[in-house]
Amino acid sequence: MENFTPWSALAGGALLGLSAALLMLFTGKIAGISGIIGGLLNPQKHEASWRAAFLTGMILSFLLLDPFGFSFPDTTSASIIVVSIAGLLVGFGTRLGNGCTSGHGIIGMGRFSKRSIVATLAFMASAMFIVFIRNQLGVL
């Protein structure tokens, strides 16, 4: 958290919004990551190529940003067990909420979807609660 700057957060948010808007503008598709990955795992006709391109661009974007000083946070001290459990919980929550944070938080909120507003409030409240517990009790 010590490397957080409002400018990098603003740039990241702007890039997320731009990519989501461009995908919707040019293809009519929603940039929900869980839906994009799910569509790759169970591909429909003429759907796999744009999904693979979107995910490849997202994964390789660090190559474009590295010369500008952007980098991933250091996660070498993270427990693989905690990270795995967190990933499973995120996957469960994605299915339970009929969409992921990017789908609800970026696209759904931008479309003023009531379901997405409720979902975003729920996962933001959950995240704040977990951070509070972790900071106060030193667990998780």
Score class of each variant (00 low, 15 high):
residue 1 M to H: 11
residue 3 N to S: 12
residue 3 N to G: 08
residue 9 A to Y: 11
residue 9 A to S: 13
residue 10 L to R: 07
residue 10 L to A: 12
residue 16 L to R: 00
residue 16 L to Q: 01
residue 17 G to I: 03
residue 19 S to M: 06
residue 21 A to M: 08
residue 22 L to P: 02
residue 22 L to D: 04
residue 26 F to K: 12
residue 27 T to Y: 08
residue 29 K to S: 10
residue 29 K to D: 06
residue 29 K to H: 14
residue 30 I to F: 11
residue 31 A to Y: 03
residue 37 I to Y: 08
residue 38 G to Q: 03
residue 38 G to F: 01
residue 38 G to P: 00
residue 38 G to E: 10
residue 40 L to N: 00
residue 40 L to C: 06
residue 41 L to D: 02
residue 41 L to G: 08
residue 41 L to A: 13
residue 44 Q to C: 07
residue 44 Q to S: 11
residue 45 K to D: 14
residue 47 E to P: 00
residue 50 W to K: 06
residue 51 R to E: 08
residue 52 A to L: 10
residue 54 F to C: 08
residue 55 L to V: 14
residue 55 L to Q: 05
residue 57 G to V: 06
residue 59 I to N: 04
residue 60 L to D: 08
residue 61 S to H: 15
residue 62 F to R: 13
residue 62 F to L: 15
residue 64 L to R: 02
residue 65 L to H: 03
residue 65 L to D: 01
residue 68 F to V: 11
residue 70 F to Q: 06
residue 72 F to R: 15
residue 72 F to I: 12
residue 73 P to H: 10
residue 74 D to P: 03
residue 75 T to A: 13
residue 75 T to R: 13
residue 78 A to G: 04
residue 84 S to W: 05
residue 85 I to R: 03
residue 85 I to D: 09
residue 86 A to L: 04
residue 87 G to P: 03
residue 87 G to W: 06
residue 87 G to S: 07
residue 88 L to S: 11
residue 88 L to P: 03
residue 90 V to K: 02
residue 90 V to Y: 06
residue 91 G to M: 06
residue 92 F to W: 14
residue 93 G to F: 05
residue 94 T to P: 02
residue 94 T to F: 07
residue 96 L to Q: 11
residue 97 G to T: 05
residue 98 N to W: 09
residue 98 N to D: 12
residue 100 C to L: 02
residue 101 T to H: 04
residue 102 S to R: 02
residue 102 S to L: 05
residue 102 S to F: 02
residue 105 G to H: 01
residue 105 G to C: 04
residue 108 G to N: 02
residue 109 M to N: 04
residue 112 F to K: 15
residue 113 S to G: 04
residue 113 S to M: 08
residue 118 V to A: 13
residue 118 V to H: 12
residue 119 A to D: 01
residue 121 L to P: 06
residue 122 A to C: 08
residue 123 F to C: 01
residue 126 S to Y: 08
residue 127 A to C: 09
residue 128 M to C: 14
residue 128 M to V: 10
residue 129 F to I: 15
residue 131 V to D: 12
residue 132 F to T: 05
residue 133 I to A: 12
residue 135 N to H: 06
residue 135 N to L: 06
residue 137 L to K: 09
